[in-house]
Design a protein around this nucleic acid. Structure first.
Lengths: 247, 247
DNA sequence: CGCGAGTTTGAGGTCGCTCAACAATGGTGG
DNA sequence: CCACCATTGTTGAGCGACCTCAAACTCGCG
């Protein structure tokens, strides 16, 4: 079962993306770097000159409002490129927080942009990252705009699981994985209060769908979780097929 | 005053974007096309093979959930490229609704992708569109996740006005413009019910900030509107400057 | 063993929702 | 050009999801 909803790439594109991935990895200016959990890698409103690729660990793009509210915008998992737009703009309004001890590669925007101009495989890999990110942002706008807190949480868990599988961090049939976010961080992602995260988690636990203990989530009923997330999923046909096949 | 928060482009990028814009306009396969308001240009879940540029009119990307809920994800205004991802994926989950009689240019994904690979100016123009869209999506996630209905509406009006100015549709100091959306559509964008749109508009009217009459919005107190939207804006320093300069 | 960050729970409030009725508007055909 | 009808807008009443405030509890860690 894969309800994570990854888009169907055109055939002619897939090869270019693979080549682009490798070519970026081979750029001379690429540097690997270990970062402590809790670090603010990029501060909102400041200039930023690098593009990154997360090798291991979790990170997130977060916006802090002047009155103390804050909202996570995207979660980055291993394999994700981020701050691609550094190539085009000199500052951006969001912070990037590293949630766990992580390893990431960085490259100066100027070098990557020259490679972008010189090699269309690299251009494809870069725009693909932004397009894939946009797909997730679309889904999340639908969730925030129209989903209940239960639906959002279920969708979130579902999506994270699917992405961890794709990145090779966990096995395709894994029913438990590390979720290194506090309830406050989850609330700031889900658009609900910390207290309500706690109550929604409690409800998921009591209904036997999933349980969070410590930094780990245990999915006890995958089908029920998928059914909860179903309305928010971006491929209803496939999701419905997945649900009924297992019923 | 421009609180619309457009990102600071790097100098070396701007020229490439201008060239890319012109080169796309000169592609042989580009076709112009008039579309009636209310048309569903792209249906969610179906294949789609074209990339579009809106010349005049309003359109929007909308997701319809299986249980009847629906949520607008992005509003397209003149000058916007959309469905850029057609180049990379063969179907997508959202519909594109044309809200008013519009004129748009379309080009087959294959031709544009070949141009994308052959000419980095075109690649830059395409990725720029996606990056700029992503910026708006980020802002909107913050609004949906943390904004009140008043803040969202104010932010929405502010942003639309800024974009209409940039696209040359209205003058920079215009305090009124066409807003051809029903309250239901606005609710589906703002993530609130139709009834609550009505009440929020009423509140904006009663507090002397702005009034919607028919298909037209009249902004009566630009500074108050900007102040309302302030927490959600993506460049607090500049927005604060704008507010105090005018105070 | 004690501290601090994070979690859990209760009580009460409020923002925005649904349902329902009615009014205005505008597009269409006679 | 008017009558009609469908769509859109407006308003009230009651309700529910989620919020805030505040206090206790747990747990990992020095």
């Amino acid at each position: 079962m894969d309800s994570s909803g990854f888009a169907l790439r055109r055939d002619e594109v897939s090869e270019a993306l693979t080549r682009g991935e490798q070519k970026i990895a081979a750029l001379p200016g690429l540097q690997s770097r270990a970062v402590k959990g809790g670090t603010t890698l990029i501060s909102g409103g400041k200039g930023h000159d690098y593009v990154y690729r997360l090798q291991s660990g979790w990170a997130g793009r977060v916006r802090n409002l002047p009155d103390g509210r804050s909202q996570y915008i995207l979660i980055f998992l291993p394999g994700d490129l981020f701050a691609v737009k550094s190539m085009f703009v000199s500052s951006h309004p969001d912070s990037v927080q590293v949630m766990t001890d992580s390893v990431l590669e960085q490259i100066h925007h100027e070098e990557l942009r020259q490679a972008f101009e010189a090699d269309s495989d690299i251009a494809s890999r870069c725009i693909w990252q932004v397009i894939e990110e946009e797909r997730r942002l679309h889904n999340w706008i639908v969730s925030l705009g129209r989903g209940t807190s239960e639906e959002r949480l279920a969708f979130f868990l579902n999506e994270i699981r699917g992405r961890l599988v794709l990145s090779g961090s966990i096995e395709p049939d894994a029913w438990t994985f590390e979720l290194p976010m506090t309830q406050m961080q989850m609330g700031n992602y889900l658009g609900i209060s910390t207290v309500h995260v706690n109550r929604t988690l409690k409800w998921l636990h009591e209904t036997g769908v999933a349980t969070k203990r410590g930094r780990r989530i245990f999915i006890r009923d995958m089908k029920a979780l998928a059914a909860l997330a179903y309305p928010l999923v971006d491929n209803h046909e496939r999701a419905a097929a997945d649900l009924s096949v297992q019923a």
